[in-house]
Computed example of a mutant assay.
Amino acid sequence: MNRIVLTLAISFLFSAAYSQETKADILQDLEKTRSAVETAASTATLKASSRLFKDKDDLTSVIVVIPEGSLVDLLPGGDDTFLHVMFEGNEGFIYSTHATINKAPVAAFQESRQPSPVSASETQSARPVSGKVTSRYEYLEQQYGPSAARKISQRKIWKGMNPEMVRDSWGSPRKINRIINDNAVSEEWTYSKTTLYFQNSTLRDWGPAKD
């Protein structure tokens, strides 16, 4: 009789210990899942290159041009037009239409805790893509060549620039005045202290800002 009682007691202790271990494993899996969900929901991937503005109300406050395909961290303070993000230590705002917010993954518990084997194709796809643009200078060099990229990265302007080059150097102007005369299109881009003069999408001259 005593032996039966002892056997039952030992079985109960083993069962309780196993139950606690199982609960601990489940809680650990839940914590990992929650962490993965929070991480995925707090990032976005750029579907087009986008300027990072220091101030969303000042479109001339360009900090850097974020290349297409880059991953950014989402921060509080965005709205329907702009996302508040962090990219390579730079905090600012990008147009919400230029990025796709990463959806949280749907987690499912697997019966087996052993990692599944990784196929050769999955291993190959996990490797970094060579030639991907990773910095503002590389983006500018790819767009305009080394000489122009160097000048634009230093926020310089010169005669002969096209509008996109000027935007990448100085950001968007606070006002554009366009005049169409026969086959010629003239534009005046007004910044805080300077007005730029374009003729048929080519920068021809500049001077003090007009009121």
Rank of each mutant, 00 (worst) to 15 (best):
K103W: 02
S61F: 06
S70H: 03
E111Q: 11
N90S: 12
F198V: 05
F12A: 13
V37Y: 06
L46H: 09
V64D: 05
L46V: 11
I157K: 05
A44G: 13
T7E: 13
T43Q: 07
G77K: 01
A16W: 02
F198H: 09
K156I: 06
F109S: 13
I94W: 04
E138F: 09
K103S: 08
T123Q: 10
R150D: 02
N90R: 09
S147P: 00
F14E: 09
I4P: 03
Y191G: 04
P208W: 01
V106D: 14
R204V: 13
A148P: 00
S186N: 13
L203T: 07
A120D: 11
G92T: 06
V129H: 14
P146N: 00
A17I: 14
K159E: 15
M86P: 04
F93D: 02
Y18W: 13
A120K: 12
E38W: 01
A24Q: 15
P163I: 01
E187N: 10
F14D: 06
T39I: 06
E38Y: 05
P173M: 00
L75M: 10
T123E: 11
G69W: 03
K151S: 04
E138I: 11
A148S: 08
T22D: 12
R127Y: 09
V5P: 00
P67Q: 05
A120T: 13
D29L: 08
R167T: 03
K103P: 01
R167K: 10
V37E: 11
Y197H: 15
V85N: 00
S153Q: 08
V185R: 14
R178E: 06
F12T: 10
E141F: 09
N177G: 03
M165T: 07
I63R: 00
E141H: 14
R150T: 01
R127M: 14
S130F: 05
S201W: 06
D55W: 11
S15R: 13
D182H: 13
L8C: 15
V166M: 07
